[in-house]
Simulated scan of single mutants.
Amino acid sequence: MGIFSRFKDIISANLNSMLDKAEDPEKMIRLMVREMEETLVELKASCASAMAARASVARDLDALSAKVGTWEERARLAVSKGRDDLAREALAEKKRLARRIESLDEELGQADALVGQAQEDIAALEAKLASAREKQRMLVQRHGRAEHRTRCRRRIQAAESSDAFLRFDRFEREIERMEAEAEVEGLSRGKRSDLEDEFRQLERDEDVERELSSIKRDLEREPRA
């Protein structure tokens, strides 16, 4: 495929549509960018050649224009010297050069058109390439974010299914069980303490009653006045 055929295909391509249909958009945009870069290099080389050819035609045109002036002066000189024969030959050479100049003028116009078209093509391809590179940058960023999310999900899943996580769950349940037992033990201990206090109070009351009864008996034994 020639350079200009590739250029037309690239410029007319709908990048968004092509990427939407691609199985691997990132790979496709990478290949497209590479193709654009290679085509751009070839277009610039072609433009440089066209500019060089245009410059060569311009130089030839300037040189022939100078020669036309020279042959006209020679024809005048020959006439002034009475050498019409030489004047005719000088004018014939001038006419031949004039025809060549007309041909070169056409070539120069064509060269200008080629250079102008090449420069337009380069500008269009550079704009397309810039758009493709931006899409490539965005795809790479999206791919990176997707890979990061995937890695995070995998790490979470691995942590949830790991022995360490399971052991942590068992350890947490064991602590909860121990806390519950401690709370029950505390309640039982509190009840036992209250019961013991009540019995101690009863025992103190009984001692007082026994001592009171003893005093009463002693008083009854004493002689009355």
Rank of each mutant, 00 (worst) to 15 (best):
R83F: 03
A22W: 02
L114Y: 03
Q136Y: 04
R133S: 01
E209T: 11
S56K: 10
L212V: 08
E134H: 07
V57P: 00
E106P: 01
L139H: 02
A87C: 03
D105E: 14
L31W: 03
E106Y: 07
R137P: 00
S65L: 12
A180N: 13
S65R: 12
A48M: 11
R74C: 04
Q157C: 11
H143P: 01
R96N: 10
E222D: 08
F4R: 04
S5M: 06
D24E: 11
R83T: 01
E176R: 13
E220W: 06
I156P: 03
E106G: 10
L125A: 00
A159F: 12
V115H: 01
D194Q: 15
D9W: 03
L219H: 08
N16M: 11
K191V: 12
E23N: 09
K27P: 00
T39V: 09
A225P: 06
R142H: 13
K128H: 01
L64P: 00
R137D: 08
E211K: 11
V208E: 14
E26L: 15
E107Q: 14
A182Q: 15
V57L: 04
M18F: 05
G116V: 05
R83Q: 06
D197K: 12
R167G: 04
L15Y: 02
W71F: 13
G144T: 12
M1C: 10
K128F: 00
M32Q: 03
L104W: 01
L219W: 06
G144C: 07
L91E: 06
K81F: 06
S214C: 09
E147R: 12
E196C: 11
C152I: 14
M51I: 07
R74N: 08
A127T: 05
I10T: 02
V79N: 00
R54H: 11
L91W: 02
V68I: 13
G82Q: 02
V79W: 01
M18L: 14
A132E: 00
I3F: 03
S188P: 03
R149P: 02
M36V: 00
S162Q: 05
E211Y: 08
I156H: 14
R151D: 14
A159V: 12
